[in-house]
């Protein structure tokens, strides 16, 4: 039998560990908060790193195109194909274009784009900045009188923030084309008839809210990747961790934001 004392000791240890954990979570939250504040403090003041911003936009936007084209198109096809079954039960397959359009514009395109960006761009930002941190390249920049936060963080966050909505619009287009491809094959719907239905189904609010959402997603992906990389611990292990937790954290936050956005848009729509 265990003595009372031993139990008390164990509880104390456990309490200590838990309080340490909670402490760490709050410290991280505070750190991210300062990181974001610093971003907004630096983004508006010169020097503006235009050349680097353009380069980063190219990295984030153009280089994501192959993957995002393929994914978007396939999602269009698959989603259309799967939805047909349910609609066919009611003999309502003629509603397919409207259904696809709403699903893609409101939910699929922003989410898919954000998840792909988090996976491709978030991890590469985390790994790149992480290895720059670990090998003292960030310090090297600072001692050569270049503000590394501006040069590395601000440029990347701006690139993800502005490229994610652009990519999202592109995914909408590609996925709708995928949907058309499938509908045309099965229902022989004409291109015009398909797109008339598509555009009739969606409202300005749908498009607008998806764009805003994508801005937020893009900002999140950029900030998380940069934060994780910038605060990467020493060693090659730290770099891997930074890349990995950039993706996990960004995806998690994107889902939370999606849920919040759903509530807000719902409130606006029925206001």
């Amino acid at each position: 039998m265990r003595s009372k004392n031993e139990n008390a000791g164990e509880t104390r240890v456990r309490k200590y560990i838990i309080s340490k954990r909670i402490d760490a979570v709050f410290t991280t939250l505070a750190d991210i908060h300062f990181f974001i504040v610093r971003f907004f403090r630096e983004v508006f003041f010169p020097p503006y790193e235009f050349k680097e911003i353009v380069r980063q936009c190219y990295e984030v936007g153009v280089k994501s195109l192959p993957l995002i084209s393929l994914t978007g198109f396939i999602i269009g096809i698959v989603f259309t194909n799967q939805s047909r079954v349910s609609l066919a039960e009611f003999g309502a397959t003629s509603w397919l274009p409207a259904l696809i359009s709403i699903a893609i514009v409101r939910a699929l395109a922003p989410l898919v784009t954000a998840l792909i960006a988090a996976g491709r761009v978030g991890s590469s930002i985390g790994a790149e900045l992480g290895s720059m941190k670990v090998t003292e390249q960030i310090d090297a920049m600072e001692v050569s009188a270049t503000n590394p936060f501006k040069f590395l963080v601000v440029t990347r966050v701006l690139a993800t923030t502005f490229m994610t909505p652009a990519l999202m619009m592109y995914v909408v287009f590609v996925a709708l084309m995928g949907g058309y491809f499938n509908v045309h094959k099965n229902e022989l719907t004409s291109f015009t008839a398909y797109f008339v239905q598509v555009f009739n189904a969606i409202t300005f609010l749908d498009i607008f809210s998806s764009i805003i959402k994508s801005f937020v997603f893009g900002f999140t992906i950029g900030i998380v990747g940069c934060y994780k990389g910038y605060n990467s611990s020493k060693g090659t292990e730290g770099v891997g961790k930074a890349a990995n937790s950039s993706v996990v954290t960004a995806m998690f936050l994107v889902f939370i934001e999606e849920l919040l956005a759903l509530q807000i848009i719902h409130a606006i729509r029925f206001a």
Binding site: E128, S131, M132, T135, E136, Q137, D139, A140, V143
Partner: peptide, 13 residues
Amino acid sequence: IGFSFQNSALYDS
């Protein structure tokens, strides 16, 4: 001030 870093800190990219 010139700073020569332990790992050289050359910009990889």
